[in-house]
């Protein structure tokens, strides 16, 4: 199989012509996307409501991972602070709903805004806030590279985390409950199946958008920035601008996932902002296969499944989970998708 047939992002030569028939990687992706849908629907049919909830969780974490994948897999930027955008998205949903449910205006100037429980409005707001935060953090962080970039993104994440813990207005460490899940026109979001379907559709839209982005001129420039910044400058593109744009889009996508996660749990707390979550997002991607379009879904699915299954076998499941992770890193490079779809991974 030629590397040409891979997802544009992962291939070493993304400029090559599109394949005539679906490649193995495409089939694996389709199987993953449809598999999640089938799992959710099947669990519902068998009355396993909790499994639907778990599938929803996988889809949401995959959206967050997809946001991270844009900068990490395609742009080569290891952000150790993506929990910041995830948590900001969550708090956006929580705070808007909190004001709407308590009939206390969020602000009265320049116009009266009483919060909202409408998901589309919440999503949009969350994405704008995530993008703004990512723009500010990215502008400063992108001055550094390598390990310094990893650590400065962590530092900004920790700042927001500690701020959320000690700021009492919205519950501090206690978090903020959303008593009723926010609504979406035409759907009963309290119904686990409706909510799952909605989240799945959002996931597919996000992945589709990223696939298109990766094929675009911008996407190609982004991947070039990962591989060779000098070459990019030689053709008259500033890598800094490309990377910052990717970082902002990434922040917006991750914030959207955060807003959905808040609605899934009907609860927001600073733990959504903790560095553990940033670490977990990285783990999803590496498990799935960094730089592959569907890596976040494969990784999140595997992670949640393992957590659920191993948790049933032993109290000390984290011990075995650690061993397994170690084995994946040492012996199964390229992650799940690399294993299934074959092909060489960058780096």
């Amino acid at each position: 199989m030629s590397p040409v047939e891979q997802i544009p992002a992962a291939g070493s030569e993304p400029m090559a012509a599109a394949p005539a028939r679906p490649s193995r990687a495409t089939l694996v992706n389709a199987a993953l996307g449809l598999g999640l849908l089938a799992f959710g629907l099947g669990a519902w049919a068998m009355g396993e409501v909790f499994m639907v909830t778990l599938a929803t969780k996988v889809a949401i974490l995959a959206i967050a991972g997809a946001g991270l994948n844009l900068v990490l897999g395609y742009g080569g930027l290891v952000s150790f602070g993506h929990a910041a955008y995830f948590g900001l998205g969550g708090y956006t949903a929580g705070i808007l709903a909190h004001h709407a449910l308590n009939y206390t205006p969020l602000f009265e100037w320049p116009f009266l805004f009483e919060g909202t429980t409408s998901m589309p409005v919440i999503w949009l707001t969350a994405m704008v806030i995530g993008a703004l935060a990512a723009a500010a953090i990215g502008a400063l962080s992108l001055r550094t590279t390598g390990v310094y970039f990893i650590m400065i993104t962590l530092a900004f994440g920790q700042m927001i985390f500690y701020f959320a813990i000690s700021w009492p207005a919205y519950g501090g460490e206690d978090g903020l409950p959303i008593y009723v899940r926010n609504g979406f026109p035409g759907l009963d979001t309290l119904d686990p199946l409706h909510f799952f379907g909605l989240v799945w559709a959002v996931l597919m839209a996000v992945l589709g958008g990223i696939a298109m982005l990766a094929r675009s001129r911008f996407g190609l420039a982004l991947q070039a920035a990962r591989q060779n910044r000098q070459r990019l400058m030689a053709v008259g593109i500033r890598p800094g601008g490309v990377l910052l744009t990717a970082f902002v889009i990434s922040g917006a996508i991750t914030a959207l996932a955060g807003a959905l996660y808040a609605d899934l749990n009907r609860f927001v707390s600073p733990s959504m902002l903790s560095w553990h979550l940033s670490g977990e997002l990285l783990v999803f991607l590496i498990l799935g296969g960094t730089g592959r379009l569907f890596a976040p879904l494969a990784g999140a699915g595997l992670y949640i499944a393992l957590e659920h299954l191993l948790g049933g076998v032993s109290d000390h499941w984290q011990f075995f989970f650690g061993l397994l992770l170690l084995a994946v890193v040492l012996f199964a490079r390229g992650g799940v998708i690399g294993f299934l779809a074959g092909g060489k991974r960058h780096g």
Binding site: L282, H316, W317, G322, L323, V328, V329, L330
Partner: peptide, 30 residues
């Protein structure tokens, strides 16, 4: 473990040593 990671990128190192944290913590608790 670590010896196998020197030639890898930072991402693999982060994941492998994160796995070591889980093993050490849970092992100690055991």
């Amino acid at each position: 473990v670590i010896r196998r990671l020197y030639a890898r990128d930072h991402l693999d190192q982060v994941l492998a040593t994160f796995a070591l944290i889980l093993i050490f913590s849970e092992g100690t608790r055991w």
